[in-house]
């Protein structure tokens, strides 16, 4: 099925696709425990209780179109911290009320863009070009460090660069903390987008991120570098004295009082 008007009409009239509910976008997720998108749109009564109880203010309210009033997590602003407070309160079962275990959540799947990921650039090219073309070096691995399910959802391949595993629940904390700008090196694709029968047209965009994730018990596990082998690999990486131009959401003090 193609895109464009003809493809759209075909999908709606020949395949019975609901034109009102199939709206997927990267880094726009339903709260944890959400049923599939079509059922979610039918069941969600826009009571915004999930939004109200979210202690992190992660859940935002859609403000336009047929999805108006429904909850979204926008991990670029604020990711979901998997406290599971919202699921319990959903009155209609649009969010699975029995879900307690954060590892069972499937909001989406993170995928790492190797062309801008600091660690990946460093590993592949030994360089990290900044805006002025200088070489700056950093093994960032922020995504691995902030992941609440580290080693289940994300691992450091060869102990050097992050790889997303099957256990990724799509909470988006890595997206929130990823230091690359303007685009993030890690992005979350919503869960529904990864299913061909549900997402239809949108699946084309999502396929890659779902195919690149590595099975938790697959060969990725066995290729972890350890000990002297790892040290050798790390020594080979060229570094520079310039610190990377990270932007912090707070003022970085030049010196700390009472520190000698």
């Amino acid at each position: 099925m193609g895109s464009g008007l003809k493809g759209f009409l075909k999908r709606v009239f020949l395949h019975g696709e609901n034109p009102f509910v199939d709206r997927y976008a990267t880094n726009r997720l339903r709260p944890p425990g959400a049923v599939n998108e079509e059922r979610f749109m039918a069941l969600c009564i826009r009571c915004n209780r999930c939004l109200e109880v979210c202690p992190y203010g992660s859940i935002k309210r859609a403000g336009w179109g047929t999805t108006i009033g429904t909850p979204y997590v926008l991990p670029e602003d604020k990711a979901c911290y998997l406290c599971m407070a919202c699921c319990r309160l959903c009155p209609t079962g649009a969010l699975n009320p029995t879900l307690r275990n954060p590892e069972k959540v499937r909001m989406g799947k993170a995928s790492i863009d190797a062309s801008i990921c600091y660690s990946r650039l460093f590993f592949d090219h030994d360089v990290l070009p900044d805006t002025e073309g200088r070489k700056i070096g950093a093994i960032c691995n922020t995504c691995y460090n902030v992941c609440p399910l580290a080693d289940k959802a994300i691992m450091l391949k060869d102990n050097l660069f992050p790889v997303v595993l099957d256990g990724c629940v799509g909470c988006g904390i890595c997206v929130e903390k990823c230091p690359t700008r303007p685009a993030r090196a890690v992005n979350v694709t919503p869960a529904g987008m990864g299913k061909v029968d549900e997402a239809g047209f949108y699946f084309r965009k999502a396929r890659k991120s779902y195919e690149t994730s590595v099975s938790v018990n697959g060969e990725a596990r066995t290729r972890v570098l350890k000990g002297s082998e790892l040290l050798d690999r790390k020594y080979k990486i060229e570094g520079s004295t310039e610190p990377p131009a990270f932007r912090f959401p707070y003022d970085v003090p030049d010196s700390i009082e009472d520190w000698e």
Partner: peptide
């Protein structure tokens, strides 16, 4: 918690 679409008072759900 809730709005007037659906409110929870303790464990009592009113929608």
């Amino acid at each position: 918690t809730g709005t007037f679409y659906a409110v929870n008072i303790g464990r009592l759900g009113i929608a």
